[in-house]
Simulated assay, not measured.
Amino acid sequence: MGTGASVPNNIIRRDSYKGRCQREPWGRMRPSPIKKGGDFMADLKLFLFGFPRLERDGKAVEINRRKSMALAAYLAVTRKPQSREALATLCWPDLDQKLAQASLRTTLWYMNKIFGPEWLTIGRDHIELHQHKSDWIDVNRFQECLAQSADHRHPEDRFCQVCLISLSQAVEIYQDEFLAGFSLPDNDAFEEWKRSQAQRLNRNLIKALERLIHMHIDRQEYEQALAYAFQLVKADSLNESAHGYLMKLYAWLGQPTSALKQYEECSRILAKELDVKPQESMANLYLAIKEKRFPVLQNQNGQGSFLSEKNKSLMSLPRIPPISAERELLVA
């Protein structure tokens, strides 16, 4: 087979490895990771967006001890060795150090049975969850996709295909809030850590969604922008700019009724959660759409409509600012 020739799916490429291979998601075969001694390492995946779960070689692994999952999540996200004392204090804050250390030893014994020494190092003083692969922990992969975009030193309003791909992958990975539905009852320290991580990751998601919306609008890909705007409202329902994106996109796509309903939904949420009304810029946008002063860029047949010079000025409406500092205090 010559250089550059494609490899049929029924042919397994072993290259320099001797042993079994695994199929990549896109169809290509890759060798399994090999540990010392020539044995194959299990292919683990830890999912922390949503209710946490672990998979080994594509099959779910049952972890029926909450403290074990909590420790796995903490070690995975911190990405560095943690002292036994710190872990014992985090998970057993109400016990004295001797009893907490005993509970930690029992939990680590259980975790070692699940992860194995290839993935979990249990030292005399420190514990570490290894990063053999960059994609085995979804939260870390999410951060790496964002970092790939951040490494591009160019203005955020400039379109970049690499950034578009990286940000799209990051948003796809974010399936739900960090550790959604998982908790350690009566453990304020862990709950505070979980809450801070969830807020940090949610802020990163919001920034990625806003950039994707702007990228697709600049490319006149309004359907794609609309899909990301839906996700933005779900991620930050109190942010009026998120509702504003949906209103504009609905109007541009010739769906003014949906745009007006979105304003009503925004008003309902703000009244219920913060006891405030939408800002003036949102009200002006609502009136522009209601009075048919907002441009329609595509009718139901997919044909672009004529824009007068007066209507074109509405295309560049200033971005609706996020909720004010006073409202942020109300949210807190």
Rank of each mutant, 00 (worst) to 15 (best):
R211A: 10
H214P: 06
K36P: 02
E328Y: 06
H130G: 10
Y286W: 14
E24M: 09
D125A: 15
L87Q: 10
P322C: 03
L317R: 10
G2L: 05
I122R: 14
K292R: 10
I127M: 13
E265L: 02
I63D: 04
K36V: 13
R65H: 06
S83E: 13
L179I: 12
T89F: 08
W193M: 11
E85L: 12
A259C: 12
C145F: 11
L179H: 07
Q224M: 11
D236K: 03
R200L: 04
K36T: 13
R327H: 11
L104I: 12
A150F: 05
R327A: 00
L48H: 10
Q97W: 02
Q262P: 00
A189G: 09
Q298D: 02
K248E: 13
V171W: 08
L274C: 01
P8A: 09
L270A: 04
S32D: 03
I320W: 03
A283P: 01
L285S: 05
I34F: 06
W252D: 08
E264Y: 04
N202Q: 07
L330F: 05
T106F: 10
R219M: 13
D15R: 12
G38T: 04
R124P: 04
E280Q: 14
L146Q: 12
E24Q: 12
Q298W: 02
E265V: 02
L209A: 01
P278D: 08
R84L: 14
S237H: 01
V77F: 08
D96Y: 09
E291N: 02
K277S: 07
A147E: 12
R79V: 06
Q231Y: 00
E309T: 13
Q300I: 11
I217F: 02
K292M: 02
D176L: 06
E172A: 14
P93C: 06
G2V: 07
P31E: 06
V139R: 05
K312R: 15
K290C: 10
L179A: 04
E264Q: 15
K272M: 05
C160R: 04
P81F: 14
D39R: 13
G4Q: 09
I320D: 09
E223N: 11
